[in-house]
Design a protein around this nucleic acid. Structure first.
Lengths: 198, 198
DNA sequence: TTATAATTTGAACAACTGACCAAAAATTAG
DNA sequence: CTAATTTTTGGTCAGTTGTTCAAATTATAA
């Protein structure tokens, strides 16, 4: 059976309020009580549509990340050279973060903070590992094609992703951060840091 | 009156167990019950030596950060040129992190996660702001002396500190991270990214 | 309309938190 | 030794958490 109209509306409402809560209060301070108050519903409703808190958080991550990766991938695929793709990766990441601040802040806070009751991270770290491996492979291709100098591709990839992640953390408590300025600087920075000099 | 021998011993014991707990379970999962179990004492003892949980956390941060900054500053001051100081800053940061993994993981987790009951960060963000301003001023001096190219000094400083912070997050769940390899790559990376080309 | 199903409420639940405290125990001082 | 002080225990307290549930309400269908 397809989800009811009410069910679809409630699920998106709850997800939106969860995002707002996490972006403003942080994951640790975000409870069903807080979300319900914001959505002006009884907190029983949340449990009615999401079996557990973990499932709600997974739904948030799934929704935001699918749009995010689609955006970034489309921008990378439009570029011809590997160095242009690196530039596009940085710019696309920060552009999406700029226009989807709260969803991105919330999503990466969930990924970082949420734990199952046995202490494991709620969102599998395979996801980050996949991103890391893919970006490292990209960089390595640039090295083989002579566009990039000889660096440790895996560490360089981890460095780029780490910066992206940390920027989201700072964005949470520095709302007036100029992401466009960061994008400009980082594009130059990683061009200088990766390109083949001779 | 000076603190008793017992008091001094208990305080360091409790601080050490708190560090171990946070480094292994994360700040969110660290409770008085957990710390007390690890120290094999009643949890009332913790409250006896630390008025509040916040005070305990502040004590941890104070202890670790004083040693950390002393280490880094001494290494910077030993270098003659600004570019050598930048290199020393990166190397000293990662070297201390490498030899003091758990205390550093715990400290930065507290700084990032701990909140007072009104939602403010427990550790004043002035501290990070001071570091940021100081590093930016250093970089700017390098620009004025012609060692560095023209970049946004504040963003470059924030970038370096962000990388340092994010590495500590990753260290928490990737115990076999090769910090020496990161130090090598980052020294080269930021040399290429900052130096005056002509 | 009536009957059926979907939705919402608000209270209760067990588990946990940090803080608090009186009594017991251990240590130190005279 | 005794007396005073410090330290520790173990329990209680009020508060919060996610989850469950019967009852009330609302929507849907026949």
């Amino acid at each position: 059976m397809n989800p009811t109209f009410i069910e679809a509306a409630r699920r998106t409402q709850i997800i939106d309020c969860t995002i707002a809560c996490i972006a403003e209060l942080g994951y640790a301070q975000t409870s069903f009580t807080q979300i319900a108050k914001r959505a002006k519903i009884s907190k029983g409703v949340i449990s009615y549509y999401f079996a557990t808190k973990d499932e709600l958080m997974r739904a948030v991550v799934r929704e935001v990340l699918s749009a995010f990766t689609a955006f970034v991938v489309s921008h990378i695929d439009a570029e011809p050279t590997v160095s242009a793709q690196l530039r596009a990766f940085i710019e696309a990441n920060l552009a999406f973060m700029d226009t989807h601040r709260k969803p991105m802040i919330a999503t990466f806070d969930i990924i970082r903070s949420a734990r199952t009751e046995d202490g494991q991270t709620l969102i599998s770290s395979d996801l980050a590992e996949t991103d890391l491996t893919a970006l490292a492979a990209h960089l390595q291709r640039g090295q083989e094609q002579g566009e990039f100098r000889a660096f440790n591709a895996r560490i360089m990839a981890a460095t780029i992703l780490a910066l992206r992640n940390e920027l989201l953390v700072q964005l949470a408590y520095k709302p007036d951060l100029d992401l466009k300025a960061y994008a400009q600087e980082w594009v130059i920075l990683f061009d200088l840091a990766t390109r083949q000099s001779g």
